[in-house]
């Protein structure tokens, strides 16, 4: 049999995203922080808890201490590097979890009964409309502060937002006639959801992940700033800013370095979100 008449399926072209320069810079900065977050504990030049120079607190940048020393004379650079796993990692994990559970609940609700769907949507809308900082404060008072509790509380706070976003995007897609076509063909719910709807809302979910990441990073560092987030001896960047407040009037690097790190992280993510959502709109 001559099967050469059938053209072989070409391997799918790997398309590099055509992002604006600023967004590419954002991606590089984000990647940099991600690497620091993963390997920071090993790469840090000093023990983040060691008093390098107890006589020279809030010291300037030197060869020994690239970003100066903090209010107890500890190495700021090492503290930023070891704190990255909280400031970068926690939002990443919680935003991912929130997205996952939001998706799960969204899919589950549509598969189950309609009253349940309505009730769940109302619950989600309610939680979503609460001021997140206030509610995080309540939860911290109720559950205390530890990393697992922070993860659970923040995930729970952001599931509704993910749920709403996924639902809205899926609702838009489900109005398309190709969904009707699949239903007429006799496809089951799962095929329709996972093969026809989900691939079309991936860009949407990515954008929303980014937005949640930013909000969570801001919220977490805020909580730590108030002393209600990551607890000593560990410290995320918000805590670093807070504990070195004394250095503000001297312009000590101990306060500006973590502040700028935090800024660069959130701005980098915003720029990436911009690029993805822009691309999505142009389709």
């Amino acid at each position: 049999m001559d099967s050469t008449a059938v053209p072989a399926r070409p391997t799918r072209r790997l398309r590099l995203p055509r992002w604006p320069v600023l967004s590419l810079i954002g991606a590089v900065v984000f990647l940099f922080w991600a690497i620091i977050a993963i390997f920071g504990d090993w790469l840090a030049p000093h023990d983040p808890g060691a008093f390098i120079d107890s006589w020279n607190v809030l010291g300037p940048m030197t060869h020994q201490t690239w970003l100066g020393t903090d209010y107890l004379g500890r190495d700021v650079l090492s503290r930023i590097m070891t704190g990255a796993k909280y400031t970068v990692g926690l939002p990443f994990v919680t935003a991912g979890l929130a997205l996952f559970f939001g998706l799960l609940l969204g899919v589950g609700a549509t598969l189950l009964s309609e009253p349940l769907d309505t009730a769940l949507s109302w619950l989600m809308d309610t939680v979503n409309s609460l001021p997140s900082t206030i509610f995080a404060l309540v939860a911290v008072a109720g559950f205390g502060t530890s990393i697992p509790v922070l993860i659970i509380v923040i995930t729970a706070l952001y599931i509704p937002s993910a749920y709403r976003n996924v639902r809205a995007a899926a609702l838009n897609v489900s109005r398309m006639e190709y969904i009707d076509a699949a239903r007429v063909r006799g496809e089951g719910h799962l095929h329709v959801i996972f093969r026809e709807i989900l691939p079309n809302i991936v860009p949407n979910m990515l954008t929303h992940f980014g937005i949640m990441f930013i909000y969570i990073a801001l919220l977490l560092s805020g909580l730590s700033f108030l002393g209600l987030g990551v607890q000593p001896p560990e410290a995320d960047w918000g805590a670093l800013i807070s504990e070195n407040m004394v250095g503000l009037s001297y312009g000590a690097p101990a306060i500006f370095a973590p502040a700028l790190s935090l800024l660069s992280l959130t701005i980098a993510m915003t720029l990436m979100v911009d690029a993805v959502s822009h691309q999505n709109r142009e389709r």
Binding site: E177, Y178, D180, A181, V184
Partner: peptide, 16 residues
């Protein structure tokens, strides 16, 4: 029994 829809734009999944 098959149906062909009016708007080919929305009747074909753009991700496939």
């Amino acid at each position: 029994l098959q149906i062909v829809f009016q708007m080919a734009d929305t009747a074909l999944n753009p991700r496939l």
